[in-house]
């Protein structure tokens, strides 16, 4: 397989509260690509990220990253996270409370490795003045920047971001989107971003995979939509006829696998509601008539 392409093809039994379902995904990731995963919560996005990171050994299938097999259930190959070229930013940042900012980054270095990269990352992420601060003394946005910087100390090829900006306010989000973009380009990363925010995806992602109940049910290329004059407004608005819907522009809904297009979406939903209401009214009238007659 092409050394520049990575692929994940796997299944995993998941449990979400009372219900359980099968995660079943198959997708490719080009080198240098910034791919977004979107979809309702509980659709299996974080599990995909955990499989890529080596934190989920139960998955059955095969994961090849740029020519290197990371996981192959049939051949009983499983590289632990320590042996994968990854950087992960968790939703709760997971900074080490007992270490200050610089120590958090330093922890990721190998013994006797130069600290030049740490200085560079602190500089790039505007963290120089906070190097001696402890995580509890930092704001959400600052913690996020530390988590991003720390994830890059090992010089990973694959950066995994699990809803990294969801806990931040709008202004801080925009600010951090810039950092993510800059890091992605500067360190030639391949990045997987889990996000719910259309504007974030619009700005950062080259491709979006939409997931629901453990399956990838569609794909959107934000740049193509932009060329047509559409902006993403919402990524997932529920499913109609088993297909996830994306809102482009103000009223234009579209199923993401492009089987039926644009304005009919709204009418489709409205007509479905109308039909249901009409059915209820008919049943009600029929029952009333029956009761009155007897």
């Amino acid at each position: 397989m092409d050394k520049l392409v990575s692929s994940l093809n796997c299944t995993l039994h998941l449990r979400d509260g009372q219900r359980s379902f099968e995660l079943d995904v198959d997708f490719h990731l080009a080198a240098g690509e910034l791919l977004a995963l979107s979809g309702p919560s509980g659709s299996g996005k974080t599990s995909v990220l955990r499989i890529l990171a080596g934190l989920e050994s139960r998955a059955k299938g095969r994961l090849v990253f740029q020519g290197q097999v990371w996981q192959d259930h049939a051949q009983q190959i499983f590289l632990p996270p320590q042996q994968r070229s990854i950087g992960v930013v968790f939703q709760d940042y997971a900074l080490f409370p007992n270490m200050n900012v610089r120590q958090n980054l330093h922890f990721a270095l190998l013994k006797h490795e130069s600290t030049a990269l740490i200085d560079e990352l602190l500089d790039v992420m505007d963290l120089k003045d906070l190097a001696r601060a402890f995580p509890r003394e930092l704001s959400g946005g600052q913690q996020q920047r530390v988590a991003l910087a720390r994830a890059l100390v090992r010089r990973p090829k694959l950066l995994l971001l699990d809803e990294p900006l969801s806990a931040l306010d709008t202004q801080m989000r925009e600010h951090l989107q810039q950092y993510i973009q800059e890091l992605h380009e500067r360190y030639a990363l391949t990045t997987l971003l889990i996000s719910h925010h259309p504007e974030e995806i619009q700005r950062l992602a080259q491709r979006v995979l939409v997931m629901e109940k453990g399956k990838i049910i569609g794909e959107v290329i934000p740049a193509e939509e932009r060329k047509k004059g559409f902006l993403l407004r919402a990524i997932w608005m529920g499913t109609v006829d088993g297909m996830a819907q994306v809102q482009l522009g103000d009223n234009i809904l579209r199923t993401v696998n492009h089987t039926f297009v644009n304005h009919t979406g709204v009418a489709h939903i409205l007509s479905a509601y109308f039909f249901t209401i009409a059915k209820i009214v008919c049943v009600f009238v029929a029952v009333s008539v029956a009761v009155l007659m007897f």
Partner: peptide, 10 residues
């Protein structure tokens, strides 16, 4: 995620 973060840092 503390332990997992440490594993992903090698």
């Amino acid at each position: 995620h503390l332990a997992e973060a440490s594993y992903t840092l090698g």
